[in-house]
Amino acid sequence: MPTCQTENYGPLAGVTYLETYTNGSPKGCAFDEPNTINTPVGMLIPHYGPANLRNREGLALEFFKSGQIKSIDLENATEVITSLGNLSAERISFYENGRIHRLFPLNGRINGYWTEHDEYTLAKPMAFDLAVGAFSAKVVSLCFYESGALKSLTMWPQETIEINSPDGLVKVRYGFSLYENGKLKSFEPALPEPIVTPIGIVIAYDSNAHGINCDENSVNYSPAGKVRSLITGNNGLMITAPEGKQFVQPLMKPGTLDPEVLVPEPMTIVFSDGKMEIIQDNIVTVDLKTATVRSILVHDPMKKSCGDCSSCSSCG
């Protein structure tokens, strides 16, 4: 099918593959010749032609059922208009109102022939001056609110930055998320970080963090800057309640590098409405109005718990 007619963007030429909704409107297209799409963030040309070593196969252009653009894989890196200024993108997803949802500076496919290192080498540092601090980093993706405000920033795993938090200056890996007013919502600690909580200081660090996107992270704050939840592999909790005492600590499980070596599995602690939940294989709920909780260091973040430290992040 060489041509596809769209309601909002006119005819699209060189269509090699077309998916449609049940009403017949286009859902997604692939192309073998250039098309220019007029969007609220500028004129964009979706990828066309066969895939190569780095380019992804599949739909270059996707639409909402309303006919508005949903996502685009660009033929070339293109500067687009954002609330942070003009930013270079190879892939963009949109809200239905035409505002940017996610922006990817690079969009190469990682496989046996094109590695993460290859893609990281292509990435260029981007400079930011935000309410949480000024820094420069190589970025995997940026997520925006419909208003245009930055929602989250995801970095390459090799990157580490420092930002301001309610707990002071913290080192961050993978990225962080923001409230719409620019205040810090969550971050992924690059090192075990002491965090002030309703039960005292707890060391926050998630050895299993993945950084696929940083909309949610290990340390989460309320809009008022109070900790809502964190993940720890370093602290145990001594709970003294009317019904007795209970000690909860990270479970020891086989390590990913060496299943013969047991390492602490991080547990999640959630605070809300005078209560605390400790989430591991089971959930322990504590009423902080009637119980007292003491945080105890059970795994020293300054000491490594496994043998091969050169390629392991389980202790920080």
Rank of each mutant, 00 (worst) to 15 (best):
A60M: 05
L61E: 02
E62L: 10
E62H: 08
F64I: 02
S66Y: 11
Q68A: 14
Q68Y: 15
I69N: 08
K70C: 05
D73V: 10
D73K: 11
E75C: 02
N76S: 15
A77S: 14
A77K: 15
A77T: 14
T78P: 07
E79N: 14
E79I: 10
I81R: 15
I81E: 14
S83A: 14
L84K: 07
L84H: 09
G85C: 07
N86S: 12
N86C: 12
N86W: 13
S88R: 14
A89L: 11
R91Y: 13
I92E: 10
I92R: 01
I92H: 07
I92W: 10
S93A: 12
Y95A: 01
E96C: 01
N97Q: 02
G98V: 05
R99C: 10
R99A: 10
I100D: 03
H101Y: 13
L103G: 07
L103Y: 08
F104S: 03
P105I: 02
L106E: 11
L106K: 05
N107S: 11
N107Q: 11
N107V: 01
N107M: 03
I110Q: 01
I110G: 01
N111Y: 09
W114F: 15
W114T: 11
E116Y: 15
E116V: 11
E119L: 12
E119H: 07
Y120W: 06
Y120K: 06
T121S: 13
A123K: 09
P125D: 04
M126N: 08
A127Y: 13
A127F: 12
A127D: 14
D129I: 06
D129V: 07
L130H: 07
G133Q: 00
A134G: 13
F135E: 01
S136V: 02
V139Q: 06
V140H: 11
V140S: 13
S141D: 14
C143A: 14
F144A: 09
F144P: 02
Y145E: 06
E146P: 07
E146K: 09
G148I: 03
A149I: 02
L150M: 09
L150K: 02
T154P: 08
T154A: 03
M155P: 09
M155D: 07
W156T: 01
I161C: 02
E162F: 01
N164R: 03
S165N: 00
P166T: 05
P166G: 04
G168L: 00
G168R: 02
G168Q: 01
L169N: 09
V172Y: 02
V172Q: 00
R173C: 11
G175W: 01
F176C: 00
F176M: 00
L178H: 03
L178G: 05
